[in-house]
Design a binder for these strands. Sequence first.
RNA 1: UGGGGAUUCGCCAAGCGGUAAGGCUACGGACUCUGACUCCGUCAUCCGGGGGUUCGAAUCCCUCAUCCCCAGCCA
Length: 543
Amino acid sequence: MELKPANNFIEEIINEELSVGKVEKIRTRFPPEPNGFLHIGHAKSLCINFGTAQKYGGKCNLFFDDTNPSKEKDEYVQAIKEDIRWLGFEWDTINYASDFFQDIYELAVGLIKAGKAFVCDLTADEIRENRGTLTRPGVESPYKNRSVEENLQLFENMKNGMYADGEKVLRAKIDMASPNINMRDPVIYRVLHATHHRTGDKWCIYPMYDFAHPICDSLQGVTHSLCTLEFEDHRPLYNWVVENTGVSHKPRQIEFARLNVTNYVMSKRYLKKLVEEKFVDGWDDPRMPTLTGLRNRGVPAEALKRFCEEIGVAKANSEIQVEYFDHFVRDYYNQNAPRAMVCFNPIKVIIDNYEGSETVLTDINPNKPELGQREMTFSKTVFIDGEDFSLCPPPKYFRMKKDGLVRLKGAYVVRCDDYVLNEDGSVKEVHCTYLPETRSGSDNSGIKVKGTIHWVDGQNFVPCQVNKYGHLLNDAEYAGQDFSERMNLNSKTVIDAVCERYVADAADGECFQLLRKGYYKKMSGGDKPVLSEIVSLKDSFKA
RNA sequence: UGGGGAUUCGCCAAGCGGUAAGGCUACGGACUCUGACUCCGUCAUCCGGGGGUUCGAAUCCCUCAUCCCCAGCCA
């Protein structure tokens, strides 16, 4: 078999195994616990698990790690599925740890029969004390030497609901003196009288992650269980379970560093608090780093995936700068977004020497000529963006200013002759003269202007507003439509340009972060408006 | 002060004994009917520090330092 060049250390391991015939078909799994929403950190794991399988012509399962019914909900499994579909990944099968509860139970019984597990009556506090510390070995449970028969009976009693939560647990007999705390006779089953979102009240004992996960991996035929670094210490236990439980298929766990992004809060605890205490509108608030939040912010799935591919896979803890993420979003829109024009805080411009009207054209996307051109009406009165006119322009201001020349994109070069102010000092209207010989497409004037600005025809404009997601709306019916749909709708209007912008802080519907780098810098003033509220909140949590 | 990981440019990241890829950022400059995009140029004599092995080391050995993870009946 021909090996594909490895792009990271995980693929190197796989290549090695492939070359010695240790594995043939690769199977991975993406294993979320349905206790919250997926965020950008999960996107990395998604890309690694699905991507690795894909690369080797293998399969990836969606696996819900639902072994703790007190925290899990069906609502979350539905949301997770939707987010994964949005990203465009296709799982082979969907499995749930709860599907394997019976198998896991039987393997636990097998462990007891083999004298490798025992029922322990110690309380949680006592177990903790007996576990020892980082530097001191633990002491054995007084219940460790119960007979197999007694253990079997007790475990069955546990299963049959004869004990209260916490009264008894099943523990693996490994080594209380192990320097690895995870190996000090870990609890593998606990009594928990809780209704499970899938199995209801069928069970009142639930396997712990460390016991269930390796078994489920094995039963699913997973060859590579790719997870994050904090599970490195659990790998010996993972392997112990695989070996001692007697499952025939032996998966291998490999760990990689989780994703951190500057200014992004990823901890589920913080995110939950933000939602519950109403700092944001919900998990899908565009300020959230959740996949659904990013989607509402206008981040294309494709851009997110490319970002995940480019950041690499390694074992060193790292923090990627948001700028890198923004780069892929910008790049995607530059390549794919239809172009259009929009004016915020519009200023009326009257072209004194122009009469009548005409149709002018502009490329829908200069990178995609096949998309054709957009028709716009040009007449005596137009609106320009409030930021594109300055009463007292700074040194290198290339947009509209008194006595200056500027091009109205797709139309003519105009000279600003004068302006009229309102009583409050704001600009009422601006008067210009257009240069007929500078018509777009047939300009032989030789006149060069430094600035080209957006404009909207005074008669054919479409008023718009921003919804709570920062989406630019023409009217209420557009609410809730996603970014791409919105752009198509806008293509029939002269007001759009949304394609070049996405919202950084939609709280008041006014603060925009623009995809265009120049604007980004201008508006952020060197600071990071993105998630600013959340960041400050994070600091207060720490304090 | 037990164990497990990590340490290459501001941020990611290649490199696997033969003399430091690439991307992001930044800074110059060109171009431009989006101050965007594009384009050219600059940005580690050095790979956490110190020793050693070698003709030759970021790559091997020793040692020190720093950072992250582990004492849930969470995952």
